[in-house]
Design a protein around this nucleic acid. Sequence first.
RNA 1: GCCGGUGUGGCGAAAUGGCAGACGCACAGGACUUAAAAUCCUGGGACCUUAAAAAGUCGUGUGAGUUCGAGUCUCACCACCGGCACCA
Length: 949
Amino acid sequence: MASSRRQYPFHLIEPKWQQAWEQQQAFRAFNPGESVPAEHPFAQRHGANAMTAGGKAPTKYYILDMFPYPSGAGLHVGHPEGYTATDILARYRRAGGFNVLHPMGWDSFGLPAEQYAVKTGQHPRVTTEANIANFTRQIKSLGFSYDWSRELATTDVEYFKWTQWIFLKLYNSWFNPETNKAEPIETLKYPEELQQSAADLQSAEVSSAINAPGSGDAACRLQVGSTLESARRAFVDSKRLAYVSEAPVNWCPELGTVLANEEVIDGKSEVGGFPVIRKPMRQWMLRITAYAEKLLADLDTIDWSDSLKEMQRNWIGRSEGAEVDFEVVGSSRCDDRTAQRAVPTSKIRVFTTRPDTLFGATYMVLAPEHRLVDEIVTEEQGEAVENYRAHTARKSDLERTELAKEKSGMFTGAYAINPVNGEKIPIWIADYVLASYGTGAIMAVPAHDTRDFAFAQKFNLPVIQVVQPNDAKTEWQVFTDDGTAVNSGFLNGLPTAVAKAKISAWLEEKGLGKKTINYKLRDWLFSRQRYWGEPFPIVWKKGPGGQPPYHEALPESALPLLPPTLEDYKPTAGGEPPLARAKDWLNLPDGSVRETNTMPQWAGSCWYYLRYTDAKNAQSFVGKAADSYWMASNGKAAGVDLYVGGTEHAVLHLLYARFWHKVLFDLGYVSTPEPFYKLVNQGLILGSDGQKMSKSRGNVVNPDDVLVEYGADAFRLYEMFMGPLQDTKPWNTQGVEGVYRFLGRVWRLFVDEKAETAFEQAEATTQEPGNQALLDLILLDGAITDADATPAQLKALHACIKKVTEDLDGMRFNTAISAMMVFVNEAMTWQAKPMSGMKTFLQLLAPFAPHIAEELWARLHSTFGQTAPSLAYAEWPKFDAALLVESEIELPVQVNGKFRETIKIAVDADNATIEAAAKASEKVQMFITGKAIKKVIIVPKRMVNLIVG
RNA sequence: GCCGGUGUGGCGAAAUGGCAGACGCACAGGACUUAAAAUCCUGGGACCUUAAAAAGUCGUGUGAGUUCGAGUCUCACCACCGGCACCA
């Protein structure tokens, strides 16, 4: 397989041009206000003052790759697929006259470096930096046109300082439902009872004022005897976009940390596949649910693939329905605590998407964790219910999922009244009802819900039909679609949609319920029990008079908050996060202690695209001018113009980043509501066996090896030639050989054969392997002259310009490359090669294979005594449609819709001429002689179809 | 189960409703060479017929439909890939 002879000296050309680009900082992007050095190619194209106050700044084009986690394994061939696509487009846009921002950086917090630290005691920063160095080397060897002056890593102190700063903004903001946006916490008004004096304070009233989701714990803290101050604090804390929750979380014992819902797959950790259990813990949460509606609605304003938008929609999970109150009857086990309540909790609120089936509700189910369970359970059922609750509490998510086939539950002994018909229905608890969705309680309509039906079957509960399928043949049992209401009193005969509207209005009128929208989206669990992450800029103060401690944010001036240096990176023996080991860091002089959790890896990636626009700003996370220039709305486009990365981030990174961006937008720190206008997912590259690449399968391809053998240009070209960017496709090393041969043909199209031989001989005998001077032995082919191109040559060239340009606009890299192959195949046959046309071809090739294009471009100019302008900034060629017009075309002729022959005919021939020519064709004659021609269909310039009978 | 996507030669793929398989890989034959490599040229969906060809028939997962004409549009189904999954 190894080629014994290089197709062309890429091993000299590629390092040469990579150095040249670096030396002149060719791909440095200039910010508004910057003056450009006169010798920089950007200045030569756009003027040195283009970016200064009076200058005419070119339109920006922000093209971004998802930055990688710098793992110890180094780059695999999947990374450069996206990077090559974006690089080609970045170079294409630069040639098109745009000011292109194309940066690269590192998502460098993360678990592997920490696990290595736990094992070896090596500081994660050391590992991380070594890995970044390796990634940098690999990425640079591919000749990408990144602006390295903007390089950043999420682990940089100067970067995570601002990550912490954004956290403070979240902490110090609340979502105002009236203005429908986030606002500084200062605009939050206390409810009336908290404006009064402490003496008037009734804890029950305060509880009722606090109804934000996830605020149950805050309410718990409001015991009788709270001071006004702590009550107010609890109220404010319950509204913050970053808040503390004591709810059950996904705890992964193996990883020693909690995980976000999104990081748990089938009850196992996404990383490592370890079991995850539910465990109540104190955690930091971000109130992403406040943005559910905006995150959903704004999907319509951005250009992402349908499948990706759909994934986000499903994850947000909006559903419209109604909340209905059911009165509880029967005995209530009143202990001292509940007896004191001013208003007995005699109502159970449920959420349903099918209020039209209310007449069919034959029982109710509460989640086992529902807070009313204790109050309604009867004496006789007390123990059984308690046992059931204990049993489900022990279950992990995995067990809950695995046991889902078999429903379980327990009768509480209590009954509720169905508000529409006064029927008494039993109240059960069951773990198929989730505490965290809706109200944590449902009305069960077993006739028209598969889960309720299964439950009713198991526990012998009645099933009443209330919807009649419109198709009479359909069985009504477990019919969950729309139909017509039956056995439903005043709803009878109404189609489902109408019945829903009518019952909703009726409920609202009677004060029994109201229309409601629910979301599957949960708040984002934002803390991790790890070392290698951003520490929270939070301290815990001692509560006055023996009250529980409360949290307080550090001032911005205290940022960055650095993590302490540790000897041992393991969690403490008591299960505290590793930061708790650093006693002098942990404990502050005034007796307060620092938060020991750290932020998840997603934090840093939520805003890195903003930092790139102003990477060195020491005053602000991003400057106003930089933000509004690079993230500006260009007509409809807003934010990053093109973002390319893998689908694995469809709901994690891409949802979190949109959320942060919207908060920053609401608070006035950024100028656009969405971060990424167009998003494209590159497909997976499989091993040559068609399997996912993995070490265990031994099918991993290392780019370094490919580069040694074929060079960066061939590697880039192959990655793009394999197929459409979005598709999953297998790697085939012989395919690399194919594009490598193509580059060899390009080389031989330009280079004199004898000079090539002389070069090879000299290289074989030289002592210096990388001797650049040898390249001077290369002379161009004498057939390249400054003579005019022939019409045929111009046609071939302009067809190529047209195809490559259109395909680049549509991101069809594979067909663009094939168009260049067609051109080269034809040009190889030319006796005389016109210099101007050859130059133009190099411009087309340059985005794909920049090194060989630069080398030949430079040689072409110097051979003809010209100074070569920068290829990277040379104006993209335009095609001349007039040159592509044919005087005569081949027209396919069909008889009865079957292709029979092509005829040559003038383009502008009229229909009569075409018909005559078609009939005259010898082959066509065979099929039409002796038959009557019934009809002739002529599509100009397309085809002729003769219908005979 | 629900949602989204994909099915075209030996392989990667290409085709505004109009000549299916461009371009490339692998393969076969030839030229060059003492020979090989590299390079250059030629061939190539299947079937049928033939000494060879020409001609012909079939052919884009399966089955229907729309149309003068369908890989492309519509409906039903099958397979594979990705996502979600007790969300009321």
